[in-house]
Simulated assay, not measured.
Amino acid sequence: MKKKFVSLLLAAALVFSLGVPAFAEGAEALPAEPEAAVAEAEPEMAPKDETNEVVVTLGDTVTATTTEQAPAADTKTTAPAADSTKETAADTESTEQKQITYVALGDSIVAGVGLADVQYSANGTSTYGVDMRPNFKGYSPDCYVGKVASKLGLDRDHAIDLGLPALTAPDLVDMVRDGKMPQMNMESGCYYVYPEFQDYIRKADVISIQIGSNDAFVPCVAGLWNATNHKSDALASIILSGNLRSSGSAVSTILKGIKDMELTKEEKNASWKLITSDMAKICDRIYPQTTSALISVVQEIRKLNPDAQILLMGYTDPVPFIPCWHNYFRKLNKFEKQLAETYDLTYVAIPKAKTDLDVHPTIKGHEYIANKIVNAIDVKAE
């Protein structure tokens, strides 16, 4: 294969596993509302919540591995002397009041895909069943939810990670509104049912939203699948599962995956067409659908929780050498700023978040995002 073709196919493959939000330029008129804050403010403390049941199915993109849920940090209590019972109880109440509840909504970036200790298990409902519930409170300390919790002194009941791999913006609307997806997303292969979503949102003081990248990436994965006559399955599985980082040389692994596809001339031409023209068409088609869904996400959250501070997480540009993606993320950031101004939200720009070859943030990338979130939070504990 020509070097140029290999590099572009590589870039296209990398794009597939992202989990950032997507948006559309020229979004339809947003319902007029107050003005927004663009993040860089000083933070405070956060979160509180509970867990629940789940039914999740995620194509063959994740290799299920059962792991222990990280223990929630407990508030230490000392048995009080008979005369000081009331005082001790009051002190404990005071300590709890100093914590706010932070809930992170979104896709695989939020979940921490690509990090070594993402928590999930097989749910037994199907061959590809994946249950992300263990990650709600057992998330990696290296993901940005864990780092926000650490910086704000929050325990695992007050910093909740509701990131769901392969989730799209319309899927998130369903999760916020109903606590479940009405049916499996046939393109992404994911299906989530978490009734507790709404309880977490109701109790939150701060809610961050990072969603939309999969809206366009998933159709591109499907496009490559069709262009290669289904030969891209193994490569997509390696990338989407987050296993790319643990496979030695990531670049050589991807190149070997491309070589192993053994594409015919027709398949190479179809793949080239996808990368050079069809991907741009997909981005243009999906953009208005995603922006519309993001508006609905905000509206549905407000119905459950009128008072929480909502942070709209901006987008990185992990594949700037592909023009259609560069333009796509540029438009999404522009739209989010507009949405924040309309709904009195806080837009948090994260243009310098470092990402790995699987397009998910590195540990330094998560640290950078966490700092941005902490500086943006303006909710005060009562």
Rank of each mutant, 00 (worst) to 15 (best):
Q99F: 05
G129V: 08
D260H: 12
S241W: 08
G212V: 04
E40Y: 14
G163D: 06
N243V: 04
D284M: 14
T57P: 11
S150W: 01
S213I: 06
P31L: 13
I322T: 07
A340K: 00
G242S: 05
K334A: 15
Y120H: 12
S247H: 14
L18G: 12
Q289L: 10
V113R: 01
L357K: 05
D161G: 02
E341V: 03
P351Q: 00
K354D: 14
V348G: 00
N243F: 01
M45P: 03
P170W: 06
V38K: 08
Q299C: 12
V62G: 00
A13D: 02
E267V: 09
A111N: 04
Q299K: 13
K151A: 15
L162P: 08
K364P: 02
D199C: 08
L154G: 02
D205E: 14
L332E: 06
I301F: 07
Q338A: 10
I209E: 08
L115G: 03
L164T: 05
N333E: 04
E382D: 09
I322K: 01
F16W: 09
S252I: 10
V145N: 00
V176T: 01
D174Q: 15
F321H: 12
Y102N: 04
D131P: 11
M313L: 14
L255G: 06
V218T: 11
Y200N: 13
L332I: 07
L255A: 12
Q99Y: 01
F5G: 05
T168D: 06
L312M: 14
D378F: 07
G19Y: 12
V55E: 09
E93D: 11
F136E: 02
K268A: 07
E35D: 10
V110L: 09
L164W: 10
F335R: 06
P219R: 01
A73E: 12
T276C: 05
I239T: 02
R156V: 05
V6F: 11
Y194G: 05
A64R: 06
G365A: 01
L58R: 08
F136T: 00
S17A: 15
A13Q: 03
A353M: 07
V55L: 11
V145P: 03
A234Q: 01
T66Y: 15
I160T: 11
V379F: 05
A293K: 03
P288M: 08
D344G: 10
Y368N: 00
T66N: 15
E44S: 02
L164H: 10
E367F: 02
D178G: 01
L172F: 03
Q198A: 09
F16H: 05
L30K: 11
V148Q: 00
K364G: 13
I209Y: 05
N214A: 09
Q289W: 07
R177T: 09
V38S: 10
D117L: 12
D233C: 04
E50N: 03
V118L: 13
N185V: 07
K86E: 14
N229T: 15
I201L: 12
T125W: 10
K372A: 08
S108M: 09
K203R: 15
L18R: 09
Y315N: 03
G223F: 09
K265C: 12
T127L: 11
E96M: 10
K259L: 09
A104D: 03
C324D: 14
K98F: 02
V176W: 03
L240F: 06
L172P: 00
V56L: 12
R177F: 04
E300F: 03
D107S: 15
D358V: 01
L235T: 08
T253P: 04
D307V: 11
